[in-house]
Structure formats: structure tokens, C-alpha cells
Amino acid sequence: MSPELAPYLVLVVVGFLPNEVWRLLGLVVGRGLHEDSEVIIWVRAVAVAVLAAVIAKLTLVPPGALAAVPLLVRLAAIGCGYLAYLLLRRSVFAGLVAGEAALILGGLLFPS
């Protein structure tokens, strides 16, 4: 193994494989299930709930530089974004802009 290839081998073993196994499992489990079957409706609700958990974790216990922004600022920003999305014709773009603006403003006002 040449030293240039070692980081790529690590990437495949600790990054690609443990991630991809869930997608492949999804292909196997999902064989033959139909769009309006009850199982699919349940599975989609589970997928939405897991995504909700990812949202909550990235906001409450965030990675890297986001952790330096105070928790209350992060919570207020995500609330502002959601409120803007609701008020402005359910626009995802409006929600993103409002949330980001609130986070930056809060970060400037309350530096950690």
C-alpha cells in the first residue's frame, strides 16, 4: 500500500461502507413494496422522524464552529426560520434566509 492511497482506503472502510450499508439494506427491504401500501406509509413516517432527530441533534449538539454560537441563539434562529417559512407562503428559501440572518445577527450580538 503506497502512502498516497492509505487515506482513501480509510475513507472507504470508515466512511463509505458503514454509510452505504443502510442504502443497500433499503434496496433489499423495499423490494416489492407498493406506493400506497400501509408499510410504505409507516416507513415514510419513520424516515421523517429520523430526519427530525437529525435536525434536533445538529441544532442542540452541533459540530465544529456552530457549537460556539450560544444554544439560545441557535434555537431562536431555527424558530425564526420556521416562522418565516410559515408566514411567507411556505417558502423554503424564505425560511432559510430568515434562519441564517437570525443566526448571524444573534452570533454578533451574543458572542460566546
Partner: peptide
Amino acid sequence: LLTASLLFLTPMSFLV
């Protein structure tokens, strides 16, 4: 703070 706001894009966009 800019890096923090870029990392915040993921939860914010996932939510809305």
C-alpha cells in the same frame, strides 16, 4: 461565525 452559519444550513434546510 460565517463557518457556523454554513454548518447551520443543514438543520435549517432539512426542517423547512
